[in-house]
């Protein structure tokens, strides 16, 4: 048995509060998770559950106050900036908002060449790589000279994916990567991500609030609630026959696009709520 690509053990993240005596805000309370090569792990939860914080902790953007995050056996939490930077060709990110994740005053070419210049790619080489990347995410080759605002939400998300792919990372954290997109674009982007994975064997940590999306792309799924992982396991099981009451509530809360099924789900949800209420009062 080989070790996982990324191993998160008992990670706690506490954001400092204002004032000296404030204890700060505990965003993650001892979270453990592992991701293997070529695998997609879905991380689902509601706002404030800590799912985004976990992604940011892995990216080195959130303060890990205890626990460990190891990448290929090497501890990467709390690395100084200089050493952290050497991980940029291993771990990358695609953010939710395709509007604020691209600098509006830079051309697509400048955005995509940014990670390449870090590695010290020469002009010619970088240009070839950019053409390759644009092709990989199915954008026209003349896109490089244009500005982000000339693109639609779905296209911008393709640009963000191209930027993440530039250094051929082994793990990409997708933080609500399709949440801001329309249905049809959402499906297209998910297909693109899956294809890239099948070609390159990259792993994804797929953070989303949408159980249906997570179910669609993930091999395994973990459910977060109030800074903890309450349930994790095989994607199909967790998203269709969950054990934890919170996951069940989450599953039943999402309306299904079928009037009769939804009416049934509504009754099940009411029954579950009544049962929980009953248990609480007894």
């Amino acid at each position: 048995m080989t070790e996982p690509l990324l191993d998160v053990r008992d990670v706690e993240v506490r954001y400092p509060g204002r004032g000296l005596r404030s204890k700060g805000f505990l965003a993650l309370r001892g979270v453990s998770l592992d991701i293997r090569e070529g695998e997609t792990v879905g991380l689902v939860g509601e706002s404030g559950s800590g799912k985004t914080t976990l992604g940011r902790a892995i990216l080195g953007l959130a303060p890990v106050t205890s626990g460990s995050i190891t990448y290929r056996g090497r501890e990467i939490s709390g690395l100084p900036r200089r050493q952290r930077r050497t991980l940029s060709d291993q771990i990358q990110v695609v953010f939710q908002d395709p509007y604020s994740s691209l600098n509006p005053s830079m051309t697509i070419e400048a955005i995509l060449s940014e990670p390449l210049t870090v590695r010290g790619g020469a002009g010619r080489e970088a240009r070839d790589r950019i053409a390759e990347l644009l092709d990989q995410v199915a954008l026209p080759s003349d896109a490089g000279r244009r500005l982000p605002r000339e693109f639609s939400g779905g296209q911008r998300q393709r640009i963000a994916i191209a930027r993440a792919l530039a250094l051929e990372p082994r793990l990409i954290v997708c933080d609500e990567a399709v949440s801001a997109l329309d249905l049809s674009n959402q499906k297209r982007i998910l297909r693109l991500l899956t294809e890239i994975q099948e070609d390159s064997g990259v792993s994804y940590l797929f953070v989303s609030h949408d159980l249906a999306v997570v179910r669609h792309v993930s091999h395994r799924v973990a459910v977060m609630y109030r800074g903890e992982i309450v349930e994790s396991g095989d994607g199909d099981t967790v998203t269709s026959d969950p054990e934890h009451p919170y996951t069940r509530r989450l599953l039943l809360a999402a309306p299904v696009p079928d009037p009769d099924l939804q009416a049934r789900r509504r009754r099940e949800r009411a029954a579950l709520a009544a049962r929980e209420n009953h248990e609480r009062t007894v």
């Binding site: 990216l59 080195g60 953007l61 930077r85 050497t86 991980l87 940029s88 060709d89 771990i91 990358q92 990110v93 953010f95 994740s101 940014e114 990670p115 870090v118 590695r119 963000a160 930027r163 530039a166 250094l167």
Partner: peptide, 8 residues
């Protein structure tokens, strides 16, 4: 954030 993750 993206630029930081890119290693800039």
């Amino acid at each position: 954030d993206a630029a930081r993750v890119s290693g800039l």
